[in-house]
């Protein structure tokens, strides 16, 4: 990872990175590959937040069982994000409600925000990566 070395000891200001997760955890690879960027990105000591909207809220659903679809259940990784100092997790209220979910159904503590508040938060970011 040569890019990481280049940045170490650099004088760039810390930027606000938002990872916007919009897709269900299985069915497509977006959720898994987004998480891979988040974990690598953690090494750069930036100000990172993750947002879950639309079917993306299912990424955090408790009790995922993937054995029968022959895929790895990567949901425990979301619980490890804390160890990477990624603690800002936001979930869109409208997306949860539309799917009959509440914060109690989720694997990790999150902040549930209405769409408008998320929009304002997005406005404050330097970089928004959408998956």
């Amino acid at each position: 990872m040569s890019g990481m070395e280049e940045n170490e000891g650099g004088t760039d200001k810390v930027k606000r990175f938002m990872f916007l997760n919009r897709k269900a955890p299985y069915g497509t690879i977006y959720a898994l590959e987004s998480l891979e960027v988040v974990l690598i990105g953690a090494a750069f000591d930036q100000n990172v937040s993750m947002v879950f909207v639309d079917d993306g809220v299912y990424q955090l659903k408790k009790g995922q069982q993937t054995k029968d679809i022959g895929q790895k259940n990567f949901s425990p990784t979301y619980r490890a994000l804390e160890d990477y100092d990624i603690e800002k997790l936001y979930v869109e209220q409208e997306s949860l409600e539309a799917r009959g979910l509440t914060a109690d159904d989720l694997l990790v503590p999150v902040e549930v925000l209405p769409s408008a508040a998320l929009g304002a938060l997005m406005e404050e970011q330097d970089v928004v990566l959408s998956f």
Binding site: M1, N7, L129
Partner: peptide, 13 residues
Amino acid sequence: ISGLGQLVEAGIK
């Protein structure tokens, strides 16, 4: 071909 660090770095730079 390189690592994901190059993406994060692009975001920073």
